[in-house]
Design a protein around this nucleic acid. Structure first.
Lengths: 188, 188
DNA sequence: CGGTTGATGTCAGGCACTGACATCACGCCG
DNA sequence: CGGCGTGATGTCAGTGCCTGACATCAACCG
């Protein structure tokens, strides 16, 4: 046995999500989160840069998987084919997490500060995807546009996915959204 | 003469941008901004919800013009044609503001909190544009996807526009970005 | 067995932000 | 003309987020 209970970070994440779901983000202090996890406020800030970050761990499957998916995607002449490949990989990270995703999304939607952090994480996905495409030889502004389009498809499909109480096939929703986008831009 | 100097809000905006450009966002306190404008910290918070908001006024040409442009756009069968129309109107709001836009963009790029606020304002543009398209009979998820695509084009073109010391034609950059996006999605 | 390491605790403090109340020129109304 | 409401601002006290500096102490290592 160690000197402290294990997995302090995970305990803080759990305590925070539970308290936020109960009372709302603003009605919970960092000291309360830490107390519920058996720690102090100061220790909370050794694990997370700020109060919001506890809901957006860099270790999340989405963040870690995203960058890896870009490198792992097979070479393709068409940027959007690579984007579609990455989206398919990303969809897998959400399987079995539908209930959790719904609760987390509800907490975030209820608070402006959290929506702000969510927006910046999505922007990070755009930048990461664009950088990956550039590394594969895609020029600007095509790389940025393809990345924006890909994340837009992800956002729309994910919103549809969490909107329903029963999980549908996220990969299928993404494929359909991508087809819809192609239809929209192709018709002009 | 009034009891107070006029245009307190404008003075606060000017003082803030100047101080942020000099020393960086974090190295400036709200009390300093207010002092430079001849006011107190408390009064600052009567004009702006928080320290960041002084750089993102709701009264900005972009924000006020965007919503109006959607309603003013002529009816069109194709969602992306409406989006293109709105982008054209938006481009006009930036004419003559190139130097100001460059300074403001540099200040924002230098700070994570400000990038966060910027991201949420862009998300607001997406939502506003999508709502406008729905009001014109465009169904989901086409409305959201078209809105995302439109704001993506705006972001990429605006980034190109402020990247160069001499102003180019923002409307032209947007048209080219839109064509590039169509080429990307159409080729898949 | 003594020294080092690393996660945690303790303490003090700055700054963002807010509620409550005071101030006082201006303009309206009698 | 004079009282009186209005509204922008000032003053003050307080909460909570976040940080730096230093202390603690089990586990590990040589």
């Amino acid at each position: 046995m160690g000197r402290w209970e294990p997995n302090a970070r995970g305990r803080l994440e759990e305590a925070a999500l539970a308290l936020f779901a109960e009372r709302g983000f603003e009605q919970v202090t960092v000291a309360e989160i830490a107390g519920r996890a058996g720690l102090t406020e100061r220790t909370f800030y050794r694990h997370f840069a700020d109060k919001r970050e506890v809901l957006f761990p860099d270790s999340s499957p989405l963040v870690t998987g995203f960058a890896a998916a870009i490198e792992a995607a097979p070479p393709a002449a068409e940027p959007m084919a690579t984007v579609a490949e990455v989206l398919g990989t990303v969809a897998e990270f959400f399987t079995g997490r539908h209930a959790y995703s719904r609760q987390r999304t509800a907490v975030i939607a209820a608070n402006a500060e959290l929506r702000e952090r969510e927006a910046v994480k999505l922007a990070w996905l755009v930048d990461t995807l664009a950088a990956g495409l550039r590394r594969r030889g895609v020029a600007e502004p095509a790389a940025s546009l393809a990345a924006e389009a890909g994340v837009a498809v992800f956002k729309v499909a994910h919103a549809q996915w969490v909107a329903e109480p029963e999980p549908r096939d996220l990969g299928e929703l993404m494929r359909r959204a991508l087809i819809e986008l192609k239809s929209l831009t192709g018709a002009g």
